[in-house]
Design a protein around this nucleic acid. Structure first.
Lengths: 157, 157
DNA sequence: CGATATTGTATGTAATGCTAACAATTAGAC
DNA sequence: GTCTAATTGTTAGCATTACATACAATATCG
């Protein structure tokens, strides 16, 4: 599905930082978005071969951590709404990475479990995440990483 | 265009943080994405009435800061590719917020300028951004904000 | 001049985030 | 216990973003 990405995209930026006084660069949210964009691009690049997105990996990871988790619970943990969650789970199910079982305790809920293919893919994904994380963290000391996580956590609660 | 958002989405999370030892919560990238998601949701909420997205506001802002800027330059500053930039500028032009003038110096380039409607909208947008920024920054001291910007800048260069 | 690079453009696809409406099931009020 | 309200999953649809790919027009440089 994912092809020759980044051929055209994001040409080497000639560092256009100039002395933008009091401009958009003072906006904290702006930097959060740029940092996220940079992370997302590197993530996507790292996961080209595995053909997985961030959200998909997060879902596999959480289903592995919490076997039998319901879709709504998953949605809350990843701050997604139900419809978006459906779409992601549908894709993962189509690839036979996970399955839905009707919960015996609550007939409304779907209990999610990884299929063998999903377990294997998650293992490969975790390796790739290691690379990706190393790329992100290479800019920081261990202390700064902890600091950053602490600060960012205050935003997403 | 933007309607009654957030009616269904993102129900109050019962704080599911438990003791996830060594799990996904140790991934820095994961926190960057959640923080970005939280920012994006609040931004979208704040801009419901103005019916503008983050990218669109960024483009208006940069065109205002750099009258006559070319699309490629804009794309580089916001780390977008040319096709995506086109789509955004098309939308802003359709709303008569900016116009394209063929550059006299380089016939390939389109010089971008704000139209009166765009100038007014940007002024309103900056007020809204003030609110949004206050929401983000309310979690931090001034020192932490500077620190955060410095750290995040290392990711997006 | 002619080859190459840059810039904008058009077209198409995928993923995400939302709205809105509906059915099935459960939980709570009485 | 029954009836109402809330929860959960589902479907369908729309807007935005992000990418690939291919093409035309223009500039640059050997």
């Amino acid at each position: 599905m994912i092809k020759d990405k980044f051929a055209d995209a994001i040409a080497p930026v000639g560092h256009t930082d100039e002395d933008d006084v009091g401009a958009i660069n003072d906006i904290l949210g702006f930097h959060i978005r740029l940092a996220h964009g940079a992370c997302l691009r590197h993530f996507t690049e790292t996961f080209t071969d595995l053909d997985l997105t961030q959200k998909q990996v997060s879902v596999l990871w959480l289903v592995d951590d919490h076997p039998g988790i319901a879709q709504t619970d998953l949605a809350q943990r990843l701050r997604m709404d139900r419809a978006t969650t459906m779409a992601i789970i549908n894709r993962l199910q189509a690839k036979h990475f996970l399955r839905r079982d009707r919960s015996p305790k609550d007939g409304r809920k779907q209990a999610l479990f990884l299929e063998p293919g999903g377990i294997e893919m998650l293992a490969r994904a975790k390796t790739a995440i290691g690379e990706h994380e190393a790329w992100v963290k290479s800019r920081f000391t261990d202390k700064e990483v902890r600091q950053l996580i602490e600060l960012l956590s205050r935003i997403h609660e």
